[in-house]
């Protein structure tokens, strides 16, 4: 579980964080705090789907579900076989 969290966290850091941004944790709000805009979520979605070989329905890929690493991992787990 923590491996999955770290995998997602590391991806979020690499994909979205800029030099000088504060450190983020599993709970840091990503979208509501402005780190990730809703357009940029598509990369995260593609990453999750490829990495875990799952298909997340578009209606489930909401800004709320993607707002922190914990909620993202919870969403992924719903679709893991």
């Amino acid at each position: 579980m923590d491996d999955m969290k770290d995998l997602v966290l590391n991806y979020v850091i690499k994909e979205y964080m800029e030099d000088g941004d504060e450190e983020i944790t599993y709970d840091t709000p990503l979208i509501s705090s402005g780190y990730v805009d809703s357009f940029s979520m598509v990369s995260l979605l593609v990453f999750l789907e490829n990495k875990f070989t799952i298909k997340i329905p578009p209606e489930k890929a909401t800004p709320e579900a993607f707002d922190n690493v914990n909620s993202i991992v919870a969403l992924v787990k719903q679709y893991l076989k």
Binding site: E18, D37, F39, S40, V42, S43
Partner: peptide, 15 residues
């Protein structure tokens, strides 16, 4: 950003 929201194409961003 508003224009992209009005469009059905997919969207992504780069740093």
């Amino acid at each position: 950003i508003d224009g992209m929201r009005l469009c059905s194409a997919q969207h992504d961003t780069f740093k």
